[in-house]
Every structure is written in C-alpha cells, then in structure tokens.
Amino acid sequence: MFSGDVIATFNELETNLYDYICKNSEKVIYMRIRDLADETHVSTSTILRFCRKINCEGFSEFKVRLKLFLDNNEETTIKSSQYALSDFMERTLKGNLDSTIKEAASLIVKSDNLIFIGTGSSGILAEYGARYFSSLGKFSMYVKDPYIPIHANYLHNSTTIALSVSGENSFTISHLNQLKQKGSNIISITNNKHCTIARMADINISYYVTEEWYKKSNITTQIPVVFIIEETAREVQKLSQQKPYSDL
C-alpha cells in the first residue's frame, strides 16, 4: 500500500504517522481522524496531507483502502508439500520422465562444460546442482547473478541447465539467449513445458506441480527439481563409466 517512492516523501511527522499505522493497522481502520491525531500527536491537517500523498481524497477513503489491503493479505493456509510430492511421483511413474532424464544425461556427458543458471530459489538450486554434478565427477559451474556478463569463448561444446518454476524469468531468458547464440546446448527444468524457457531449450524436463504463493512469494515446492537434478547426475555418472567401453 505504501510504495518506496511515497515513503521517501514523508516528513518527520508523516513518518511517525506511517510507523504507527503499520504497527496498528487493525485498530486504525476503526478510528476517527481525531482519535488517530490524538494517538500520534499530530494535527488532523497532517493526517489529511498524509492521505493525499498516498492518493486518497480523505481519511475515510484511506481507511477503506487500508481495510482492503488487510483483507487481501490475510494468512493463507499452507498445505504440506507431501501432496505436491505425491502428485509428482504418481505422474513420474506414469509418464516419460525417466526417458527424458536419460536423453538429457546423454547430452551432458558429451559436453566439455556444464553450466547451471537460475535466480531466487532456482539460483540456490543451481548452486546445489553444480556441486552435486561435480561431486559425481562432472565438473560444473553455476550462475545465479542476473547481471553477470557472459563473454566466454569456451561455450561451444557446453550444456546449460536452466532452472525456473514459471519458465518466464526475464534474466534467465536473457542469459539463455546469450548462451544459445554462443553454441551452448540448453536443458531446462521448469514446472511446465508451455513456457518461454522450455521452448528455448533443446530438452525440457517438466515436473507439473501446483504453484503456491504466500503473499508475494512463490513457495512452490522444489522437491521435484532436486529429484531431477540428482537422477540426471547419477545417470551422467553411469554413462561416463560406460563411455570407455562404448568407444572400443
């Protein structure tokens, strides 16, 4: 309700008023303007000026908007991740996830370099993926800084694994575009195959779980992603051991 730009315009009295409202929102929506003035030790004119700064014509409109804001931010019930996990495992048994993982592993094992990219929680998993693959003998690196420049010349025989729940992250898309143009193969791990990042990839591995949000944070379970990363790494390790024999 209060943007950073608006908060920056508050004077000392208005900042104290803002602080009181944030700490007593449930109480303020039922107060009269005189009551709020007495509680915060400011004049009613200061309160009206405060309301106009946040585009409210008066205190009554401000209270209505504050109540709507509070109603939209009520606590939501967070389901156990076991439901999403059971759905994923059921689809895994019925679908072609295993064959897609093997296809991805075959591509990775032929590559000289392996790069993981992602931002947010996907960036954390990119770091985990790079470490897990490296632990199993396929040295990997990760990129989770959305602003890092990509100018390397060793990307021609490389594979990039892009992690994204929505598959629409603009920074990841921008990085993928650069990596693809430099010759890197693309494997994407996304929640569905009908997204931009999946369409950019040579191979897409989708896990299809219900997206969950808590307020403005995406809290969709990442358990399927960990499973896919680990299964792919194990398949790469197995293929790497077989490689000398297949070359005979």
Rank of each mutant, 00 (worst) to 15 (best):
R52L: 06
R52H: 15
K53R: 12
I54A: 03
I54V: 10
I54S: 04
N55V: 02
C56E: 06
C56G: 12
C56Y: 06
C56A: 10
E57W: 09
F59Q: 14
E61K: 15
F62A: 00
F62T: 01
K63D: 05
V64K: 15
V64P: 00
R65N: 15
L68D: 12
F69M: 07
F69G: 07
D71L: 13
N72R: 11
N73Y: 06
E74G: 09
T76F: 06
T77L: 13
I78A: 04
I78C: 10
K79C: 03
S80W: 02
S80N: 13
S80A: 14
S81C: 02
Y83T: 10
Y83E: 13
A84D: 15
L85A: 06
L85G: 00
D87A: 05
D87G: 02
M89C: 04
E90N: 13
R91Y: 07
R91C: 04
R91M: 11
R91K: 14
L93D: 06
K94E: 10
K94M: 12
N96E: 12
T100S: 14
T100R: 13
I101N: 00
K102I: 07
K102H: 08
A104S: 14
A104Y: 01
S106K: 13
L107A: 08
I108D: 10
I108G: 08
V109Q: 14
V109F: 03
K110T: 08
K110E: 12
N113V: 11
I115M: 06
F116C: 01
F116K: 00
G118M: 08
T119S: 12
G123L: 07
I124D: 04
I124M: 11
L125V: 07
L125S: 06
E127F: 05
Y128C: 07
G129E: 08
G129S: 07
G129M: 02
A130I: 03
A130G: 11
R131P: 03
R131M: 15
F133G: 06
S135M: 12
S135H: 11
L136R: 09
K138F: 01
K138P: 07
K138E: 05
K138C: 01
K138A: 00
K138N: 12
F139E: 13
M141V: 13
K144T: 11
D145C: 10
D145A: 08
I148P: 03
I148M: 15
P149W: 05
H151Y: 14
H156L: 11
T160D: 05
T160W: 06
S164G: 10
G167V: 02
G167L: 02
G167F: 03
N169C: 12
S170D: 09
S170L: 09
S170E: 11
S170C: 02
T172D: 08
T172N: 11
I173F: 02
S174N: 11
S174E: 13
H175Y: 14
L176F: 07
Q178S: 08
L179V: 04
K180M: 04
Q181M: 09
K182F: 08
G183I: 11
S184D: 10
I186S: 05
T190K: 00
